[in-house]
Nucleic acid binder design. Structure first.
Length: 200
DNA sequence: CTCTAGATCTAT
DNA sequence: TAGATCTAGAGG
């Protein structure tokens, strides 16, 4: 069993606890297999590293608020806002294993034949499979209008590994190598090299 | 106002 | 390994 963690804690604390929890959007449900934490104005990889701007304002929302943004002009990425509103902090959902509604997820992805293991192993794929776009941005888990539900995990506690975040070299070596990516053993969407064992 | 660098994915 | 596609935010 994997309980839903307290999202009012800092993202680097919450992130590993989300592995094994489930996300549901309509009939599509998936188990979270990979996440990353972005935390604080000091984190050069975090959108709020230059403080509050029109975009980064979403990171100062109440814990449990969705932070969804368009990346590379074509992919929506899903984050769950964490910590107190004065601290910009969020967990990026990078990987899922679809456990229910696989065909609907395949349809949303436009990949009718994709194996489950490859259908949602990447942050852009996750949001697309869950049917999330900008309209989900700034809605809050458990509140009216939020298309997403966060559910406890129903399986055994996953074995966790952690390593550097992906695609954030621009943040400089200190922040780019910070081991703020966690994944369920065997489910890293990107390299597992450099992985360290960890516990939730 | 213009310009550029992205928390990516897919097909080649 | 390149091309798709668009916008926040920095700089003029």
């Amino acid at each position: 069993m994997t309980p839903v963690p307290d999202l009012s804690r800092p993202a680097p604390e919450v992130a590993p606890l989300l592995i094994g929890c489930r996300l549901a959007a309509g009939r599509v449900i998936g188990r979270i297999t990979e996440v990353e934490a972005y935390h604080g104005e000091d984190d050069r990889a975090c959108h709020a590293h230059r403080g509050r701007t029109p975009r980064s304002a979403g990171l100062y929302a109440a814990p449990g608020t969705l932070y969804v943004y368009l990346c590379y002009g074509m992919h929506h990425l899903l984050n769950l806002v964490c910590d107190e509103p004065s601290i910009p902090s969020a967990v990026l959902i990078r990987g899922l294993i679809i456990t229910h509604g696989l065909d609907e997820a395949r349809r949303r992805r436009g990949q009718p034949k994709a194996a489950a293991a490859r259908l949602t192993n990447g942050p852009g794929k996750v949001a697309q499979a869950l049917g999330l776009d900008k309209t989900a941005h700034a809605t809050r888990l458990g509140q009216r209008g939020c298309p997403l539900r966060l559910l406890p995990g129903d399986g055994p506690s996953p074995r966790l590994l952690c390593g550097p975040r992906i695609g954030v070299d621009y943040a400089g070596p200190h922040w780019a190598t910070m081991p703020w990516r966690w994944w369920e053993e065997g489910y890293a969407a990107v390299r597992e090299a450099g992985a360290r064992q960890t516990t939730a």
